[in-house]
Structures are given as structure tokens and as C-alpha cells.
Design a protein around this nucleic acid. Structure first.
Length: 230
DNA sequence: GCGACAG
DNA sequence: ATCTTGTCGC
């Protein structure tokens, strides 16, 4: 699939910060009318400690069966360090390389990281959403910003995530007695729909939504296959 | 100045 | 994210 070229990725932290603030205004936090995603993608990145290489994978699943219908991978050298609040500048390039190899255009993308639940309301999910011009939702395994109460232990229990008085996300228990997930808006989706889909996409026996779980498995298999013949 | 801090 | 085996708890 083709995607827009929004800006250069050659930035230092101060400029990246200014860019996030500027692009955050373009995020659309509303669910399209008659939103019926049929192809749902999951994207994830992997890296070996001490290596300069970053590996990315995007897996497309069909709804409602959740069968994998397409898998693509890509790798490239890291051009930005991991700095909390700037994850998209590290992972964005490789993930977009992978997305460009996709034959099918997904209707929704499940991102491994926060979206709106970010200091400047522009996490990885929002950033990818603008580049791809697709609905995206952020699913993070831990908190970046915000406060919340502990969701009940039952699958499907939620608690609002606040940054001061602003609601920035939903803390969702996808599996009993497992740490909850942090769901937030990415682009072209509302918070309610983002949380609803995050739960719908999660099989009862796992903690992560299938798109994210399968992308994680795919990128690790890809990385290991390359590290092997070397 | 001291913690917190997606992956 | 990565390293890394067994083991505690539902």
C-alpha cells in the first residue's frame, strides 16, 4: 500500500517535539460513520540488544475469524534512540517500510504503544495514523502518562485514564488477573470504539489483541531467521 | 534538585 | 525492546 510522505525522519529531540505538537492538531478522534473494519492490521518492532538493526512486521487479519491473510517484514538501521515520549521516531521508519509492502489496505491498525495517551497527545498510534491515513488505535502494555484506578479483575473491566482533568485513554483488563492494557485513540477513531475493538480483538486466553500478538510473533521469527544465516 | 519514563 | 529458567498462582 502507498502512504503519504508527511515529513523527514531526520530530527533531533527538540525538533521532534515541535513536530509532535504541530501534527497533533491533525489527529481525528472520531469514529467514521458505519465503521465496519474487515481487515485489521497489527504492527510491531523487534531489536537485539547491542545491535544497530531494527526489525518490523505488519500482519493483517480478517474479521471476525482473525485468520492471518498477509504478513510483511522490513528491517533498517536505527536512526533515533529510544527516548520516552518519542517512540514513533525510532519505530516509525521501519514500520512504514513494512506497511508499504502490504498488498491489501487494512481498515484498522492496532499499534503497539500509546496514541493520544501521550504528553503531547501524539504517540506512535497517532503518528502512524497520519502517515497511513487510516484508523489506528494504541494499545500499550504499560503507562506513559496519566493516573487511574485499578480495573476489576474480570475480563472487560475498564477504568478511565486521566491526565489531570482530561480523559486520555482507557485502562482495559483483557484477561483475568493479568496486568491491564492502556488503550487510546490513534487516528480516525473515538475512544469508545478503540476500547471496544481492543477487547473484541483479544482472545480470552491471551492478554494482547490478536493483531498485536501475531505481529509480535512474526517480527521475532523474522529477526531470528536473519540472525541465523549470519 | 528528585523521580517518572510507551518500546 | 532485550537478557533469561524455573516457578508461583489462578
Amino acid at each position: 500500500m502507498r502512504c503519504a510522505r508527511l515529513h523527514t525522519w531526520s530530527l533531533d529531540v527538540p525538533r521532534a517535539k515541535a513536530l509532535q505538537t504541530r501534527l497533533a492538531a491533525r489527529v481525528e478522534a472520531v469514529t467514521p460513520r458505519s465503521f465496519k473494519p474487515r481487515l485489521i492490521a497489527g504492527a510491531d518492532m523487534s531489536h537485539r540488544r547491542g545491535s544497530e538493526w531494527l526489525y518490523g512486521a505488519v500482519v493483517v487479519l480478517a474479521w471476525p475469524g482473525l485468520e492471518i491473510v498477509e504478513t510483511v517484514t522490513a528491517r533498517r538501521r536505527a536512526s533515533f534512540p529510544y527516548v520516552p515520549g518519542y517512540l514513533s521516531f525510532r519505530e516509525g521508519p521501519v514500520l512504514l517500510d513494512a506497511f508499504r509492502k502490504l498488498k491489501q489496505r487494512p481498515d484498522l491498525v492496532c499499534c503497539d504503544g500509546h496514541g493520544y495517551a501521550h504528553p503531547r497527545r501524539f504517540g506512535l498510534a497517532c503518528h502512524l495514523g497520519l502517515w497511513l491515513e487510516l484508523p489506528t488505535l494504541g494499545v500499550a502494555k504499560s503507562r506513559l502518562v496519566g493516573t487511574h484506578a485499578e480495573p476489576l479483575q474480570a475480563r472487560g473491566s475498564t477504568e478511565p485514564l486521566f491526565d489531570g482533568a482530561e480523559r486520555i485513554g482507557t485502562v482495559l483488563r483483557t484477561r483475568p488477573n493479568a496486568h491491564p492494557l492502556y488503550v487510546s485513540v490513534g487516528h480516525r477513531i473515538g475512544l469508545q470504539a478503540a476500547a471496544d475493538w481492543a477487547l473484541l480483538l483479544t482472545r480470552p486466553e491471551y492478554r494482547l489483541p490478536e493483531p498485536a500478538r501475531q505481529a509480535h510473533a512474526a517480527v521475532n521469527a523474522y529477526r531470528k531467521s536473519i540472525e541465523l544465516d549470519k
